[in-house]
């Protein structure tokens, strides 16, 4: 440690490490136990490459494609749908095809849009695992994959929504979609009041990830 980091103040408070000893290193990845599932994923990946099912380059390209996705792409789609009723109709018919119109590759797993209105508020969950429209809006947040969210979103959705700061009036239907199979879901949030004069870019910046899962409104 350099002299510029002087320790002339008292150390009578609790410290996580000896202030005069070596600085603790962040553990290396290899210091955590290598789990059965990690080992199996590595082994299956290597086997598929060895058997020419796909190449190492295919695998890298798919990981890069998934990493390149973010809620910003879904936000663009939502903003356009707010502005163009015909486009919104096509989104409700087939999200993947509508995304292609905007130059967004949302993959081949069918994504279904569900629209919030003044009578219905939609919420998405996958109780069995963590199905999520990854190829449109990126990887799911950790809480979406938690057992707590997955079990409670179906059983007490209004309580869960309140924890996200979202109150849905009792005269509105809360409709929870359990994404257990071959579909993925995307919520079209209600366009906020006061946004009538906004440009498409401004509208895009209003749309959040959580609003596309349905745990918040805008």
């Amino acid at each position: 440690m350099s002299d510029s980091h002087s320790h002339d103040h008292d150390h009578d408070h609790d410290h996580l490490h000896n202030p005069h000893g070596p600085h603790p290193y962040q553990p290396d990845l290899e210091d955590a136990p290598f789990t059965h599932c990690q080992l199996m994923a590595e082994a299956v990946g290597e086997l598929l490459i060895e058997k020419d099912v796909f190449s190492a380059d295919d695998l890298r390209a798919m990981i890069e494609l998934i990493d390149s996705k973010s809620p910003a792409e879904g936000a663009r789609l939502i903003a356009r749908a707010w502005l163009d009723a015909d486009f919104k109709a096509r989104v409700l018919e087939n999200v993947n095809d509508a995304a292609t119109e905007l130059g967004i590759d949302a993959g081949t797993i069918p994504i279904r849009a569900v629209e919030n209105t003044d009578t219905v508020h939609n919420v998405i969950v996958c109780t069995l695992c963590s199905c999520y429209p990854r190829l449109l809006i990126g990887l799911p947040p950790d809480w979406y994959k938690s057992r707590s969210y997955r079990s409670r979103a179906v059983r007490e959705p209004r309580t869960v929504l309140k924890e996200f700061g979202t109150h849905i009036d009792d005269n509105i239907e809360v409709r929870v979609h359990d994404s257990t199979a071959d579909l993925r879901y995307l919520v079209i949030p209600e366009r906020p009041q006061g946004s009538e004069t906004m440009s498409e870019d401004e509208l895009t910046s209003l749309v959040t990830r959580d609003s596309m899962i349905g745990v918040t409104t805008l």
Binding site: V154, R155, P157, R158, N171, R175, V176, H177, D178, D182
Partner: peptide, 20 residues
């Protein structure tokens, strides 16, 4: 929801849509 969970506390019109 009221048909799925005994003691569901939300309004009667709340629903659950599941892919089966």
């Amino acid at each position: 929801q009221a048909d799925v969970w005994s003691g569901y506390t939300g309004p009667g019109q709340d629903t659950l849509v599941i892919d089966i």
